[in-house]
Design a protein around this nucleic acid. Sequence first.
DNA 1: CTAATCCTTAAAGTTACCTCTAAGTCAAGT
DNA 2: ACTTGACTTAGAGGTAACTTTAAGGATTAG
Lengths: 128, 128
Amino acid sequence: MYTIQDVSEKTGLTAHTLRYYEKEGLLTGVERSQGGFRQYSDEDLERLGLICCLKNTGMSLHEIARFVALTNEGEQTLRERVEMLREHRESVIARMAEMQRYLDKVTWKLNFFSGKLKEYEERKGSAS
Amino acid sequence: MYTIQDVSEKTGLTAHTLRYYEKEGLLTGVERSQGGFRQYSDEDLERLGLICCLKNTGMSLHEIARFVALTNEGEQTLRERVEMLREHRESVIARMAEMQRYLDKVTWKLNFFSGKLKEYEERKGSAS
DNA sequence: CTAATCCTTAAAGTTACCTCTAAGTCAAGT
DNA sequence: ACTTGACTTAGAGGTAACTTTAAGGATTAG
């Protein structure tokens, strides 16, 4: 069992953010102590791992909340969840391919400017 | 020479956004007709291409504006600009690698849920 | 000539994702 | 016991990158 601070340190999310995620329906059903303190289990951490994973690949919190809600409805939503993940995966792959094309252009520009810089410095060097 | 609408269609940015970018110092020095209408040249389009490229790889408009300002200062800022591009390129590469790791996890989860789905459907199929 | 397009400023609104504050109470670890 | 950390609600504040609105006037292409 972990306190909110433990989880904050493990994940890099602030305690504020963790409560916020809970409020938004991202990480649901976290246990509480008698006093009302959140007690995160390893299973919670794993679920949070998937949440972060989806978030970091660009899924909106809203969509993640939808995925979580489906999960909470049980087995009969498996098909829909698989479909969501599949689509998300495709979109990530597409985005990465696009990114690669942009990166190639940045690289090209960088080389271009590097060439100009070299030329400029030689010009300056020989002039001194 | 292109009107703002032409450029909007070519780039997918709205005319509003183009004016906004100009105001923010991203695309500077666009020619005007006697009447004050913007007249974009091919060179403007090329500069805009680089701007979009940087933006689409995650550089903030603020940083792009800084890059553009340096460009406008001329050759003596070449070193700094090359440095900016180099750093940006590194960060994009790092982000893509991170993304790939997250994507692998999504793929893993997808396979896991696919398996569960298959099992579930067989169970349901045999029960009917 | 006329319809469609463009110009301006200034500011308010939007979406996403937090981030922080306040005020007051309560719990846990040493 | 005491200090540190956790709890609540509710709402304000913040940033990035737009997006829209309004109002009125000027320009341009056919």
